[in-house]
């Protein structure tokens, strides 16, 4: 079970980083600050607070997740500390899994702590209606963050080339977060020869749902009544808009990106 030792080492390493403590402080201020400011910007219900927080998390967690992971293994590879790890009786798979896990912990501990504090504050202030589902929000957030960390760590395992890492991280972010919806819509429009009357086919809906942030929204929709995701709900909606499908999509993102990273990492010389 060497992946646990790798993760333990990685967390130990990160916990001495000033950046991480700064991040922890910023996230706490941000989430709690939002909880406090929500009085002025929202409708004053707990569910509304969760929806607002989810929007916040949805925006920053991808960036933080990518930053936390995209140089993890490649940096160790470039400076040579990876050699110390790989001289030990542990496999490259264990190193990859352990590093991903370590970085997930590094990202999620401050995020979830900050959100917990903010949630507690919000429950006291805006009433506890809907607060029972707050742990589900934390769980969905954890999965959402983990999917970006996994993709970033996989990227760092796939190449040690500085330029490719940077491009990979930027393109990955643009594709996964910014352009996914537009690209899907464009693909549909193109295939339908720009005839808007033909509507949205099921496969396009599935592609849209495969975006991590869309899956995250679907997960939240399962427990909170949040407008953002309810556009899919209808009698004729296909089964894959259900929350379990969203869960499967996020888990799938984690598994698939690690598998791709592993293939590249396993085959090369260090």
């Amino acid at each position: 079970m060497s992946w646990r030792d790798v993760a333990y080492k990685d967390v130990n390493d990160a916990s001495r980083s000033r950046t991480l403590w700064l991040l922890f402080g910023l996230l706490s201020v941000l989430f709690v600050g939002y909880a406090a400011a929500y009085t002025y910007v929202g409708d004053g219900t707990f569910a509304g607070f969760v929806a607002g927080s989810a929007g916040l998390v949805g925006g920053i967690l991808p960036i933080l997740g990518i930053l936390a992971g995209y140089r993890s293994i490649s940096d160790d590879r470039a400076d040579g500390s990876l050699l110390l790890s790989m001289a030990l009786p542990q496999s490259r798979t264990e190193l990859l899994i352990g590093t991903a896990l370590g970085r997930v912990v590094v990202l999620l501990v401050p995020t979830l702590l900050g959100l917990s504090i903010a949630g507690l504050y919000a429950a006291l202030r805006y009433g506890t209606e809907g607060a029972i589902a707050y742990p589900w929000f934390l769980f969905a957030t954890a999965l959402y963050g983990a999917s970006f960390v996994a993709a970033a760590v996989a990227l760092s395992a796939a190449t040690a080339n500085d330029r490719r890492l940077t491009y990979g991280a930027v393109v990955g972010y643009l594709l996964l977060v910014v352009l996914w919806r537009d690209l899907t819509a464009f693909a549909v429009a193109f295939l339908h020869r720009f005839d808007p009357g033909m509507g949205m086919p099921d496969w396009a809906l599935l592609v849209q749902l495969a975006q991590p942030s869309e899956a995250y929204a679907r997960l939240l929709d399962a427990r909170f009544d949040i407008d953002r995701a309810s556009r899919y709900v209808g009698d004729s909606a296909p089964a894959f808009v259900d929350w379990w499908a969203a869960l499967a999509i996020l888990v799938g993102w984690i598994a698939a990106s690690l598998a791709v990273g592993y293939r590249r990492f396993e085959s090369g010389d260090l």
Binding site: S2, D5, V6, Y8, K9, N12, D13, A14, R16, S17, D79, G80, S81, L83, L84, L88, P89, Q90
Partner: peptide, 21 residues
């Protein structure tokens, strides 16, 4: 051509090897 883990102490380095082995 190795390098040490920048932020880990000497003790933590040995600890890492001890756990892994």
């Amino acid at each position: 051509g190795y390098s040490v883990f920048d932020r880990l102490t000497g003790r933590q380095h040995v600890e890492y090897a001890r756990r892994s082995k």
